[in-house]
């Protein structure tokens, strides 16, 4: 890989850093609740992909390295999705007001 590639990736990373700060100043949540957080996380994921594929050389690495690198994020995904699947679909235990209203 040429050093030129590293400078291009670096320019993209700095651009995405400016984009994520700029996006945080826009009130995107008025279009769709949670859109601000989703945009910030998408930009972070894009930056992470650039770092992993180019700076960490996974793009040109062998299949075994691909599997190990992907496994880390797949298992992180399982932990996040299964945990949030529970927590985001029930009421917090310290806010029982709605529960007591329902049982009245």
């Amino acid at each position: 890989m040429q050093t030129r590639t590293y400078y291009i990736i670096f320019a993209w990373l700095m651009g995405l850093l400016i984009a994520t700060v700029a996006a945080s100043f826009l009130n995107l949540d008025r279009f769709f609740p949670g859109l601000n957080a989703a945009v910030a996380l998408c930009i972070a994921a894009a930056k992470a992909m650039l770092v992993v594929l180019f700076f960490m050389h996974v793009r040109h690495a062998g299949k075994l390295t691909w599997i190990f690198a992907s496994a880390a994020f797949v298992w992180l995904g399982i932990m996040l999705v299964l945990t949030l699947n529970d927590y985001l679909t029930r009421h917090p235990v310290d806010q029982p007001i709605q529960l007591s209203v329902q049982t009245k």
Partner: peptide, 18 residues
């Protein structure tokens, strides 16, 4: 690079809550 990667996620999650 990995330590950099962690910060890439920590920065928007902690500093840019809107």
């Amino acid at each position: 690079h990995f330590v950099d990667l962690v910060w890439i996620f920590l920065f928007p999650l902690l500093y840019l809550i809107r």
